[in-house]
Design a binder for these strands. Structure first.
Length: 567
RNA sequence: GCACUCAUAGCUCAGCUGGAUAGAGCAUCGGUUUGCGGUACCGAAGGUCACAGGUUCGAAUCCUGUUGGGUGUACCA
């Protein structure tokens, strides 16, 4: 339900009827319950332009507001605020209408776009570590969200599979792997270290490694086969992580660095043709206004750089994939790189002016001391290890473990543990750094996944006691708590739209927290299954509980977090 | 040096592109129950929104400066 849009139209009409010219009408949520449900604050600005008393204007506007249906009452308050209360009858009807709707009342975008979302982007030379978590889950959430709202989403996993380190790796693979056994690739970190040691020790090996880099690039069959088997093994590790995380990336979404490699000379040509290229200290550069340092697109030795690949990628996504919006979910530290690359792509006409290019940046994961999150000896934490630990910790936190079968217990631990890691990350404004804390994320209290999953399980427990077929009837809003809960549920669509524009998953989590908190209050004060409750009221409350469960489930679904009926 | 970014309660975070008395959770103190899952709910206390100016009827939010952290700054990705 697009409530804000409805109210905006009503105010627009009221202003028109009152003969007041205004654009940019913004309806906002009321800051406090006593100020109603929504408020319009624009009158004060208008008063200034019109040089009239704001309260008088507000009064005039109010007289022209059409209150049939959605609005119960409007009031002028303070210096000229217009406060709006929504009608319970209207809320009841709207809520009742979506109880069995699997989209929970959320519509589709009227103009759907093609959106490319570039996320995860692991390096094939190593295993995924904690640094890859944010890109992977923020990107996946954004993809889920836009898909749900009706955009055509193209997921792109820009894996790092090209570069000098692969010469060393495949030379070592060949040396170690004479019988075709790739068991050693189980731990890529170790494999990389071993290869490096060999590289540093043996001149002969180092030469071979360098030779192999050239051979891969020139398409040597033997080396390409080795390289391919290495990439396959490494990608397999990533897929294990994606599967544990419930991230939807597949092999079809992989568009690797190597894919763009053949296009790189053309990128240089294009830049040359557009007159953007400058030779400086032997390197081919693009100098941009407002930047002291140029962007190097081809090194003095002829090699290309990641800016070159990104330009090829941008052109491919805009022209071949025909995207209207391209989002890069990449660490905030690459902010200026993307600003520069985006500017070049547009100037060189590689990307049409109308295409929206966005860097969805995010901060770093920190430990309790506010330092980048590392193992005790300063190494990187492998993502797979982190996820496994989350599941182990989740299992330990489950009370009455005897009540479940081993299978149930494993499933719950998975849902809870993985959910906790993801939720903790997604619930924080992506642009800031955040402090990783097991205790906080696995808590039942506050804005955590467990609080939501627990509320969901409680509702399921209530619904189980009732025959689903018998739950038929209207939601009747009879008090303030129900009013607030129903309204919050109906704000789902407005929330998702905002989250999609800003690309902020935490907008969804804080909304969800509001919903669940309101439900808990409702649940506390309005008993459902206790004796002595009228059937009509009981059904209404059951329906409201059911609707709350739908919102919880759908929200978590978009965030890529599962629920269970029992915890 | 230059650029970007951040600074809100003891701690972890919100604050919706300027609105009314700045909000949550944790921790602290107190309360609720013959309980539909109490891993819940209610309340108290806790703030010079880093600092100083400016714009405005109105600033945590916009502008300038200062201080303090983080990050990035031409042949890595």
């Amino acid at each position: 339900m697009k409530i804000k849009l409805k109210l905006t139209r009503i105010i627009e009409n009221a202003l028109k009827d009152a003969d007041i010219k205004a654009d940019d009408i913004v309806i906002s949520d009321a800051t406090k319950p006593e100020f109603g449900d929504y408020q319009f604050n624009g009158v004060m600005k208008l008063a200034k332009i019109l040089k009239q008393n704001p309260r008088q204007i507000a009064t005039r506007v109010i007289e022209h507001i059409d209150t049939t249906g959605i609005i119960k009452k409007v009031e002028v308050a303070g210096p000229g605020f217009i406060n709006i209360w929504l009608d319970n009858g209207w809320l009841s009807a709207q809520a009742t209408a979506i109880v069995n709707d699997d989209r929970v009342g959320v519509g589709y975008f009227s103009s759907n776009q093609k959106v490319v979302i570039d996320y995860s982007g692991p390096n094939m030379a190593k295993q995924m570590h904690v640094g890859h978590l944010r890109s992977t889950i923020i990107g996946d959430t954004l993809a889920n969200l836009l898909e749900f709202l009706g955009d055509e989403v193209i997921r792109q996993n820009h894996i790092g599979d090209w570069g000098t380190q692969f010469g060393m790796l495949i030379a070592y693979l060949e040396e170690r792997d004479t019988d075709g056994n790739t068991q050693e690739l189980k731990d890529l970190e170790q494999f990389y270290k071993d290869a490096k040691v060999r590289f540093d020790q043996s001149q002969e090996f180092a030469n071979k490694a360098r030779e192999y880099v050239v051979k891969i690039q020139s398409g040597d069959r033997h080396c390409l086969r080795l390289w391919q088997s290495f990439i396959d093994a490494s990608l397999g590790h990533c897929e294990e992580v994606y599967s544990k995380l419930g991230v939807k990336l597949t092999r079809d979404d992989v568009r690797a660095e190597s894919f763009y490699n053949p296009q790189l000379p053309k990128v240089i040509q294009t830049l040359e043709k557009q007159g953007l290229l400058t030779l400086s200290d032997g390197a081919k550069c693009v100098f941009l206004e407002d930047w002291d340092t140029p962007v190097i697109v081809q090194k003095g030795d002829g090699g290309y750089l990641y800016a070159t690949t990104d330009l090829a990628g941008l052109e491919f996504r805009a022209k071949e994939l025909k995207a209207n919006r391209i989002c890069y979910v990449v660490d905030a530290r690459q902010g200026q790189h993307f600003k520069q690359v985006f500017a070049i792509a547009k100037q060189a006409n590689m990307v049409n002016e109308s295409v929206k290019l966005e860097h969805i940046g995010f901060g770093t994961m920190m430990d309790k001391g506010g330092k980048p999150f590392k193992t005790r000896d300063g190494g990187v934490i492998k993502l797979i290890d982190l996820l496994d630990e989350a599941v182990v910790r989740a299992k330990a936190s489950i009370k009455e473990r005897d009540a479940y079968s081993q299978e149930e217990l494993d499933n719950i631990a998975n849902v809870v543990g993985i959910g906790a890691v993801k939720y903790a990350d997604l619930s924080i404004n992506r642009e800031s750094n955040y402090i990783f804390s097991w205790d906080k994320m696995l808590s039942f209290e506050g804005n955590t996944s467990l609080y939501m999953q627990y509320a969901y399980a409680r509702i399921q427990s209530i619904l189980r006691k009732y025959n689903q077929e018998e739950i038929k009837g209207d939601i009747i809003i009879s008090d303030e708590t129900e009013h607030r809960l129903a309204l919050m549920i109906l704000k789902f669509e407005d929330t998702l739209i905002k989250a999609s524009i800003d690309a902020t998953p935490h907008t969804i989590t804080s909304y969800l927290y509001d919903v669940v908190t309101l439900f808990m209050k409702f649940y506390e004060s309005n008993p459902i299954l206790k004796g002595g409750i009228e059937e009509e009221i009981k059904i209404s409350r059951l329906q409201l509980a059911k609707l709350t469960a739908s919102v919880i489930k759908k929200s978590l679904d978009i965030l890529g977090i599962r629920v269970v009926d029992k915890i």
